[in-house]
Design a binder for these strands. Structure first.
Length: 281
DNA sequence: GTCCGGAAAG
DNA sequence: CTTTCCGGAC
């Protein structure tokens, strides 16, 4: 890093925070420092867009305004409220954790990142979100938005799906965090990513940090962040029937959008799983 | 159809 | 390390 890099970084962070204060969306969980409500919102938002999660959050807060009320709720009632959100194990983990907090921790929400991390259904992201939003612990969140914003600003071409990237981006995000302003910084980074610097069509033309953005300078907004799409391997089972008449063997031209398009092969019977000889015949 | 995403499980 | 869980956007 250049000697003035620290200053440049501080400038970038200040600009993003300034942008956040002017453009942030008014969302209900931004008006509370209650760790329970922040946790609730984060679990819902983990797998859901704000627009879709909002009504669920409102219904949960209405039905279960405290960790005690959630802990006392019947399983079916919670699952019913969760219906439509998907990833149902998260609702189950949330309920189990609420009960654990009430029964084992005297209803006291853990206040530190390291302790939050031990709870069921709370991983690095959610632990950092609660620790910073509710308790202002100086721990940086790392979510898809943060990855994207950092990859673009600094022109980082590391594959964000790799575990190694978590270290690179994690230490960078942590280094950028202004001490004592974790909640503000984290929310600003994520909101900036969601609104100003989305995956498609980032709003570079009126971006406050355009002048220091590597992706903009190199016109790489669409290429960053780099995410190696996992080529999913599918097993296919081909059983060929060979029809022979004298010297001639029947072949068939392959059509349609598939492997070997336009090429010839024998008459084919395909199964998604391995089939026995009897089944094929 | 493809891609996306936190945490847990494998 | 990779895969799985779900529903929505496109």
């Amino acid at each position: 890093m250049q000697p003035n890099q620290h200053e440049a970084n501080r400038w970038i962070v200040d600009k993003i925070i300034e942008w956040y204060q002017a453009h942030k969306r008014d969302l209900p969980w931004r008006h509370t420092q209650d760790p329970y409500l922040i946790w609730l919102s984060e679990v819902i938002l983990q797998q859901t867009r704000v627009k879709q999660g909002l009504p669920y959050y409102q219904r949960f807060v209405e039905a279960y305004p405290t960790v005690d009320s959630l802990a006392a709720a019947p399983d079916e009632a919670v699952m019913r409220l969760w219906q439509g959100l998907g990833y149902y194990s998260r609702a189950r983990n949330m309920l189990a954790t609420a009960r654990y907090i009430v029964e084992q921790l005297g209803g006291e929400f853990p206040a530190r990142y390291a302790d939050l991390l031990k709870l069921k259904g709370i991983g690095k992201y959610t632990a950092a979100a609660i620790a910073s939003f509710a308790f202002d612990e100086d721990v940086a969140v790392l979510d898809g938005n943060v990855y994207r914003v950092l990859a673009r600003i600094f022109g980082i071409e590391e594959d964000i799906a790799s575990p190694q990237a978590a270290k690179t981006f994690g230490s960078l995000a942590q280094a950028l965090l202004p001490k004592g302003q974790a909640a503000l910084y984290n929310q600003a980074m994520m909101e900036f990513g969601a609104v100003q610097c989305p995956p498609q069509k980032p709003l570079c033309l009126y971006c406050p940090i355009q002048q220091t953005c590597e992706a903009f300078r190199r016109s790489m907004q669409q290429e960053l962040p780099v995410k190696k799409s996992k080529v999913k391997v599918r097993e296919r089972f081909f059983y060929y029937a060979i029809f022979q008449s004298g010297e001639q063997i029947a072949l068939r031209k392959r059509t349609g959008k598939d492997i070997w398009e336009g090429l010839y092969d024998f008459y084919l019977y395909e199964t998604p799983t391995e089939a026995s000889e009897e089944a094929v015949l």
